[in-house]
Design a protein around this nucleic acid. Structure first.
Lengths: 197, 197, 197, 197
DNA sequence: GATGAATGAGGCTTCATTCAT
DNA sequence: AATGAATGAAGCCTCATTCAT
């Protein structure tokens, strides 16, 4: 009854990658509920049914996407931790630079991770990933606070303010106001001020 | 004097208010596409059809909601501008305090305005509202920069970083980690550092 | 976006009845999996969505249908039980006559109850209904066996053979070979022989 | 003499048999529309595509299955016809015994033939098979009626009642209430009564 | 001949919207 | 003005079928 108009010979892993890339683009632009599966399929240039060969369902797709990117994000930002012989300021500037590198390389992923951080379609496992990441950062902050080279405030709040600053700038870029090279460096100086003793 | 022989059981304006409140709650929690009209009606304790008597359609509802709250937000934050005889630092702390007052009084609205700031269901008119607001803030920043009491960086970026910090803290609260009274004040100090010369 | 082409003013209970009747017809003819919901809607002359206003889903629909008809069947066959002053033969012939009356009045329902008796989409509650019915019949058989006016064999088996005979004849009718009036009566005589001592 | 240099790993006929067996199991349990082709393939431990190498399509598969089993059924029940020197009662008991032997050897097939006897996916050829079988039985009945050793009623109806009784007992077994050896024999006595003059 | 990933029509279900009451 | 049952387009998902390997 159904005649596939074109049979792809792609490696299954490549098909999976195409789907994830298409989903990333659409989810980051239109959100989870605003994106529909057939559109993801079209963007990925696969049949709608193929998505279900690689993912349980739409929810399984966001969760896989979130997990993959959150993990990638964590690794690129946190591993390896900046050289502890550097000053905390320089360590911070390194982290800030990594954030920007990640964003510039993966703008959609950066937006996606922000927008989907609290959807009720994310499974517990994904929420824990996010938590674990913040706890690692917290350790770093606490160390600096004990050395009196970071200001004294609840670590979670410092993280929230610094990462919030970063996301604020990201939204500027997304709205069509990109930062120039020097401005990015400058923004690191400004963000560092939040943390200074 | 005429005494109405029959008094409508519900003031239409009250019905409208109920709908807007219900929509605010649901839109802020589940997003535009994740919220459906019958649920808004139920939350508002009105019939589904009644929504269409007060708003063109679902899109008309978000737009009205966004306009009303963005306007309210603008007024509560910007009007009147802090006393220009105060130091810029104190002016800023006043603005930061207003942000927190607004958030604590209207947490759903604060989240709503953030989450829906870039939906493609927002009509141009709403986007302009947001822009105009930022331009007013920009003026304030530029004035400070000319007086050399605010750091030199593109005003839009400073706004983005400061408001981003605020939103970062708001997300912390939404995630169940509320700031104590002293911490809010402290956060103002920290945010101010971004703007210092 | 959607404009109902025709708005029905039917009493909701009537709509529900129309859906049940349409479902009975199609389920009995094509089975559960062979019947699709839009077809039921069309047969019932309602919109496809309306079915979900009255029933949880397709499974909820079969279950409701099965429950209603199994109950109706039980009442028409078993209530009131034939006069116990009659001979068991006459009691049986009365029951056999009721079966035929039920079938002739509700041929689709008779087939439906047979075909769907063991579907794994039937909820436990429905299966119990069927069981309870058989247990009542069993009581009647056991009474006759104690009076030595019914043959001695496991009651369940006697029920199975007699009701099987009835269903065999029903299938003949469904295949286009209806029994004439006298033949129905005759079939009662023949079926009775199974039960005779 | 030629020795094949390479022996096919699987005899095609065996593959075909595996598919038919898997289909029999699933079709008998879940019906035609309730069974899907990939599941048949998995049950048969073959690739989904292999089914289409042996059968036209899903409909071709049921039809082949029905034809094979109906034919096997006919042969096991009717060939050779019981010794005509036996009394009709003994001839009947022989047939009844064959029915039970067939069922006990092929329970799925027995259920399958019953459940799928009237599906509209069966091609005319299959329906005729069923008809021809009944006509043969009819001949046997008519002969007995002419000898006045079988009761006088339309042969089709007698067949329907007797075979209906058999199916009723089969359904009991399928429902988990198996007949003991003596009860099967007993059921033959009871079924015979339907036919007695 | 066998495989199984890919396909997309079609099934089940949701929900924005209407309108008779 | 308010209601809420009804509607049907559109979304999510299944599965019969194909074909490159």
């Amino acid at each position: 009854m159904n005649i596939p108009s074109e049979v792809s010979l792609r490696d299954p892993d490549i098909t999976r990658k195409c789907i994830l890339d298409a989903a990333l683009k659409l989810f980051s632009q239109k959100g989870y509920h605003g994106t529909n599966v057939p559109d993801v399929a079209q963007e990925a240039a696969v049949g709608a049914g193929s998505i279900y060969r690689h993912f349980e369902d739409k929810q399984g797709l966001v969760n896989a996407l979130y997990r993959e990117w959150k993990e990638k994000f964590r690794k690129e930002i946190m591993i390896p931790m900046p050289d502890m012989n550097l000053s905390f300021r320089d360590q911070f500037l390194e982290l800030w630079g990594r954030l920007w590198r990640f964003y510039r390389t993966n703008p959609n992923a950066t937006v996606f991770l922000d927008v989907h951080a609290h959807g009720d379609y994310l499974r517990a496992e994904c929420r824990e990933l996010a938590l674990r990441f913040e706890e690692d950062l917290q350790q770093w902050i606490k160390a600096g606070q004990q050395e009196k080279v970071l200001t004294n405030a609840p670590p979670f709040q410092l993280i929230a303010m610094v990462y919030g600053s970063f996301l604020g700038l990201v939204k500027q870029e997304q709205a069509g106001r990109p930062l120039k090279a020097g401005e990015i460096e400058r923004s690191g100086d400004l963000a560092w001020r939040i943390l200074e003793p």
